[in-house]
Amino acid sequence: MAALIVATPCAAQDQNEGERASVLADALAKCPAIAADAERLACFDRTSAALLAAREAGNLVFVDREGMRTAKRAVFGFSLPKIKLFGDGRSDRAEPEVREIDSVLASVRQAGNGIYLLALADESQWQTTEARTGFFPKAGKPVKIEAGLLGSYSASIDGKRAIKVKRIR
């Protein structure tokens, strides 16, 4: 089972929590190489106790691959700073970036001037950024939102021509 250890910031710590998580993971990885049984067991005990204490304090969170996929989907469409929360993307084991989502329109509201607010079944909310004649989205229709160039997004509702959108919630 693959897991991601996420460090949460703690202002009282001198050492960056991300670095601390990496140090603990590295220490745990070295334990099996210790030849003497007592020393190896002590290494596992010491390192696992430190990891569990950090988790109990809320400084570390363990997330499996499915949790990473869910989190990536949940933030799809938001402008986020470049952080290594989901890895650096260079590893063969890294989860690929989410480039599109498929959902269903839960509700549609007109915002005026041909602009619509689209609520998806996953509770995300999007707003069209361009007015289009003959565009009348309806709740219950399938929607695909795809990432475009330079942080843009487009939504295709019921397989029809895509319209530019932005995530608002």
Results as ranks from 00 to 15, higher is better:
125 Q>K: 10
122 D>C: 11
80 L>W: 06
139 A>N: 04
126 W>V: 04
150 L>E: 12
71 A>G: 12
143 V>P: 02
60 L>N: 03
139 A>L: 02
124 S>A: 13
97 E>P: 06
153 Y>P: 10
158 D>R: 03
103 S>D: 14
76 F>L: 11
141 K>D: 12
81 P>R: 05
70 T>D: 01
90 R>W: 11
64 D>T: 06
155 A>Y: 07
98 V>Y: 00
101 I>S: 05
148 G>R: 01
144 K>F: 02
143 V>Y: 02
146 E>W: 12
110 Q>R: 05
137 P>G: 07
128 T>S: 12
96 P>F: 09
142 P>T: 11
150 L>A: 13
100 E>P: 08
117 L>G: 04
69 R>P: 02
89 G>V: 11
63 V>F: 10
153 Y>G: 09
118 L>T: 08
80 L>F: 03
158 D>F: 09
126 W>Q: 08
65 R>S: 15
70 T>C: 08
158 D>Y: 11
116 Y>I: 04
62 F>C: 09
77 G>Q: 04
154 S>L: 11
88 D>N: 14
126 W>E: 02
80 L>G: 10
108 V>G: 09
130 E>T: 12
100 E>F: 14
71 A>W: 08
73 R>A: 07
113 N>Y: 13
84 K>L: 06
110 Q>W: 01
84 K>E: 12
76 F>K: 07
147 A>F: 04
153 Y>D: 04
98 V>K: 06
155 A>K: 09
141 K>E: 14
142 P>G: 08
126 W>T: 07
104 V>P: 11
90 R>S: 13
149 L>E: 15
101 I>V: 14
120 L>Y: 02
136 F>E: 13
134 G>V: 01
